[in-house]
Design a protein around this nucleic acid. Structure first.
Length: 485
RNA sequence: GGCCCGUUGGUCAAGAGGUCAAGACGCCGCCCUUUCACGGCGGAAUCAUGGGUUCGAUUCCCGUACGGGUCACCA
């Protein structure tokens, strides 16, 4: 056991939107840090200026803040290992590359793109795995100096051992060993003087004291080269945790190009932040117990890398809906009203209705907020409906019985002053008893007359309470009129 | 194609040599009920495949198939 404080990082490049897989990686990194009382660091990897997207950094901040993945160190909050924006750390990469050259672990390469292209073509034609042919690997110091002096553009490449194997350890996959001969002499410093991700990443992780590297498993195959770099520097490699991808289906990754939802899209579609976070935590990780609903704080307690999956997970929007629905049901009623009101108001413009009751009836029936408007579209105006709706086998109602029932109901309702759920309930059930019929015999036609719909949030009594006395009576009269034809 | 990784119901998945192979979502049925939901109860549905090892393999080993990743002066 080592007593070093756990430090994890999330290191996105500001190239656009924040997809679900990225967010999940951030979440896992955050959880591992917090579970161990450690720090979560945000680092922006912007060494490729050509891919930089305006506003992308802000989007990263916004998403992380919204989901509660607050970083202890980062570009805006600072910290002892700054700067936290990679492009602002340029000087140090040159120095570290120089150290590798001096110790024989890296070398200058003056090959131009044309030559590399040609080499690759030949290799592909002869079906050899495309790799740099190490043309400049053994240049003499004099040759190097001459080219440097002449101002020939160059890159700096890693000098991978020609023989032997390299093994690294991943917490999920265990030990992975590869032949060094399959490893490319990858570029460390580009011709523009910027480090490649492959180099910057290693240097940054080390200088920032990162103890656990959590990242997508597309990096699994380049990790041996990183380990070789750590070895060359004499640094201790971090603990690696490579997580599998989230897929759209068994073949396609979830991606912007496929038109799949980003985190922000999901929020716009009416999902709750907490529900989305909860769901993605479950995609590729399984908790110990039976519970699946966790707040961020609960996740910190519950999370364990043992539960991480080694195979890709398919994003299931249906399950997300179910979890979102669970969160909605658990919302305190006032909170639900607060969230739901704008959606209710999309189709309910009248001011004389009881919005509180609308919200109450809606809460157990809402899976995502965006489907609220169509559920309450009958409130402002009674839709055209067919009298066939009055026919219901189970309720033993048809047009004739409904007409009778509505005619009985009308005077009772007219006489009612206490227009509350309790008040209406009492009167209507009194009537049911007096008539000696089943509840549905009276209530089914009332609900139809009030809503003009086959299905509604809430029953006859709730709807009457929502609509108010005047409007309710108007609609019952309308029903009687339709049935009398 | 080389190298690396993976494969339990439709989906997320538990399992870590002997289980009637958990649970959740979805689906189906029943109950509750003034509709629809909510809630409750029950059901159908899974170990890719062929060889080993073993008294015994979903679990360990090898092959095959299928899937994923990677082979950039992108990250």
């Amino acid at each position: 056991m080592d007593s070093k404080k756990v430090r994890t990082r999330f290191a996105p490049s500001p190239t656009g939107y924040m997809h679900i897989g990225n967010l999940r990686t951030a979440l896992y990194a955050y959880l591992i840090a917090k579970k161990n009382g450690g720090d979560f660091i945000l680092r922006i990897e912007d060494t490729d200026q050509t891919r930089y997207v305006e506003g992308a950094v802000e989007l990263i901040y916004r998403t992380l803040k919204r989901t509660g993945l607050l970083w202890d160190e980062g570009p805006d909050v600072g910290g002892p290992c700054g700067p936290y924006i990679q492009s602002q750390r340029m000087g140090m990469f040159r120095e570290y590359a120089q150290k590798l050259i001096d110790s024989g672990h890296a070398y200058y390469c003056f090959c131009d793109k044309e030559r590399l292209e040609e080499v690759r073509k030949i290799q592909e034609a002869s079906r050899i795995p495309p790799m740099y042919d190490r043309h400049c690997r053994n240049l003499s110091p004099e040759e190097v100096k001459a080219k440097l002096d002449a101002g020939v553009p160059y890159v700096i490449r890693q000098k991978i051992p020609l023989e032997g194997t390299t093994t690294f350890h991943d917490e999920l996959y265990g030990d992975i060993t590869v032949e060094n001969s399959t490893l490319d002499d990858q570029i460390l410093i580009k011709a523009d003087g910027m480090p490649t991700y492959n180099f910057a990443n290693v240097v940054d992780d080390h200088t920032m004291g990162i103890t656990h590297v959590v990242r997508g498993n597309e990096y699994l195959s380049s990790t041996p080269k990183y380990n070789l770099l750590y070895e060359a520097f004499g640094w201790e490699p971090p603990i690696y945790i490579h997580v599998e991808h989230i897929m759209k289906n068994s073949k396609e990754k979830l991606s912007k190009r496929n038109g799949d939802a980003s985190f922000e899209d999901l929020i716009e579609k009416g999902f709750l932040t907490e529900a989305v976070l909860n769901y993605i935590a479950l995609l590729g990780w399984s908790p110990k117990g039976e519970n699946e609903i966790f707040s961020l704080d609960e996740l910190i307690k519950e999370f364990d890398i043992d539960g991480l999956s080694k195979s890709p997970a398919i994003f299931d929007p249906v399950k997300l809906r179910a979890i979102n629905a669970e969160y909605i049901r658990r919302l305190p009623p006032e909170k639900f009203l607060e969230y739901a009101e704008p959606y209710i108001r999309q189709s309910v413009k009248r001011e004389d209705v009881n919005i509180r009751i609308i919200a109450e009836t809606l809460q157990p029936r809402t899976e995502i907020f965006t489907e609220i408007p169509e559920q309450v579209d009958f409130i402002d105006a009674l839709p055209e409906y067919s009298t066939e709706l009055y026919r219901n086998k189970k309720m033993k109602t048809d047009e004739a019985t409904s007409l009778i029932a509505l005619k009985e109901v009308l005077p009772v309702m007219q006489a009612l002053d206490d227009w509350s759920i309790d008040g209406i309930h009492a009167k209507l059930f009194e009537l049911v008893e007096k008539l000696g019929v089943k509840n549905g015999y009276v209530l089914w036609p009332v609900r139809v007359a009030l809503s003009g719909k086959e299905r509604t949030p809430g029953g006859a009594i709730e709807i009457a309470a929502i609509l108010g006395k005047e409007e309710s009576l108007k609609r019952i009269n309308k029903g009687i009129e339709l049935l009398s034809k």
